[in-house]
Amino acid sequence: MTTNADGPQQPRPRRRTPAGAAVLREDVTEAIRAAVFEELAAVGYARMSIEGIARRAGVGKTAVYRRWRSKLHLVLDVVSALAVQGLPVPDTGTLEGDLRLLFEVTSRALRHPVASQVIPDLQAEAARNPEIAEAMQKALRDGQEGVASRIVAAAERRGEVRPGFDDELALDLISGPLYWRSVVIRTQKLPKGYLPSLARATAEAIKAL
């Protein structure tokens, strides 16, 4: 009870939390995100539907729409989340060793059955949809390129590369060949010794910049 100059007042009723403000369960959110990847791999972006995602996640359509207002926004969120997850930053003590470890991890990720189907499909959609194109670019830039830039910076601190080298070209050298093999021409099985050779050649090329 409160009082003021006019005398005592009735106790103020407690404010109830609006039903729409309920906390969203993280396990449901993650189940929906996982279902998006599976649905993309199964039917592609064009044929993907909120109904199919909800069915695969074992939830109702309302659970999806409470989190994302459309199929496009759901896919953009999932793609952007790739950038947040990132890749581990190798620390082997040498540029070649760091590159080899990065290439091994990236190669496994790109050759994953789901990723090998989802990424080309999203690339095709990106050619038609600027929002998806921007999300894809951010995921790639903040993912592998973010790690690659730290690998190159570490090599510079160790004196393995010359001062004033072209760091943008170095990132292209690191990111280009494996992405071309795994995503563009979709080579499922790399030649024996390819990754060590690629790491060695890339390290030498960067040192020559």
Rank of each mutant, 00 (worst) to 15 (best):
L178Y: 01
M48Q: 10
A63D: 09
P196G: 06
A155N: 06
R181Q: 13
S116H: 02
P13T: 00
T3Y: 08
R186G: 09
L40T: 00
I132C: 04
L95F: 14
V147P: 04
V28Q: 15
E204H: 11
D98L: 02
T62R: 13
R108I: 04
I132F: 10
P130Y: 02
R150D: 13
Y194W: 10
V152M: 08
G193P: 07
V161R: 05
E131L: 11
K189C: 09
R14A: 14
L110K: 02
R25L: 15
T29F: 07
R33L: 13
V105P: 00
R25F: 04
L122A: 01
L74E: 04
A126G: 14
M1D: 04
R111H: 07
V184C: 06
V75C: 01
Q9H: 14
R111F: 00
V152D: 12
S80Y: 00
V79H: 01
A54S: 04
E131S: 02
A81D: 09
L178K: 05
R157H: 11
G52S: 11
S49A: 08
V84F: 09
V78M: 03
L178A: 12
L87Q: 06
A115M: 15
D166M: 11
L76D: 08
P177T: 00
T3C: 04
V147Q: 02
A35T: 13
K71M: 09
E131P: 00
A83F: 09
S197Q: 15
A19V: 11
A203S: 05
G164W: 01
V105Y: 00
G176H: 07
D6E: 10
R200D: 14
V59H: 06
H112K: 00
P8E: 14
L82I: 01
L178W: 02
E145N: 03
I53P: 10
T2P: 03
G44M: 10
L72P: 04
A57I: 13
R150P: 08
D121W: 08
Q85T: 09
G97I: 05
Y65H: 12
V114C: 04
G193E: 08
R69E: 14
F165R: 11
W68I: 07
E26D: 14
K71V: 03
V79M: 03
F37V: 07
V161I: 15
V36P: 01
D27W: 07
I206G: 01
E204A: 14
A133L: 10
V147W: 03
I50S: 13
D166T: 12
L40M: 04
P163E: 11
